[in-house]
Amino acid sequence: MSFDEPKIIKQLQSGDKRAFRELVEATQDHVYNTCFSFVKNKEDAEDIAQQVFIEVLRNVHKFRGDAKLSTWMYRIAVNRSLNHLKSVKRHHKVQSLDEMVENKRMKDIPSTEDNLQDPEDEHTQRLEVLQKTIESLPENQKIAITLNNFENLSYQEVADVIGISLSAVTALINRAKVNLRKKIIEHYKKIEKDPQGF
């Protein structure tokens, strides 16, 4: 996110609408991308991104500048996205665990036969496998790896957004990568063993 933060904060606090537009235009893709990387749905991601900007507009007068504005915005985006995911999960709670597992097998995981048809499909399906595996990570690991890889935030920036130390973020991302590798290996082994089952 590149903009003159102190200047824009002052302008926003004095109710300058042009400054708000400037902020939105400079950061909309980052905010949207962050939301999308969690919710994986374009409409929902846009709704959440809008909520993020509305929250910024409403609370900017309280912003004391202890953290960077972008860090604050990422934090709001992550929190809103996770809350959205939780509410979606609550709505689908009626679905039994068995049904979920079965649906996951049927719908989410692509078959190897199809995988090898078209290189573009292969890429899309690998991406899908990666995203599904990221989703299955513990929450903190998911946030850290998402911000680091989808938004290209540095470890320090990720630490600022989550509110933990740099060393903790380093450990978190390393653990996340180890877990990802394990889960992806398991996934492809399952497919190899039972290609019809998926």
Binding site: I54, K177, R181
Partner: peptide, 26 residues
């Protein structure tokens, strides 16, 4: 497959908002 899938981690696509985001927000 594992290597290629993990490689994608370094090359994740950046999503962009639809045109007119500010107008809709406003």
């Amino acid at each position: 497959d594992v290597l290629k899938t993990l490689d994608l981690l370094e090359d994740l696509t950046q999503e962009k908002v639809r045109h007119g985001f500010y107008q809709r927000l406003n």
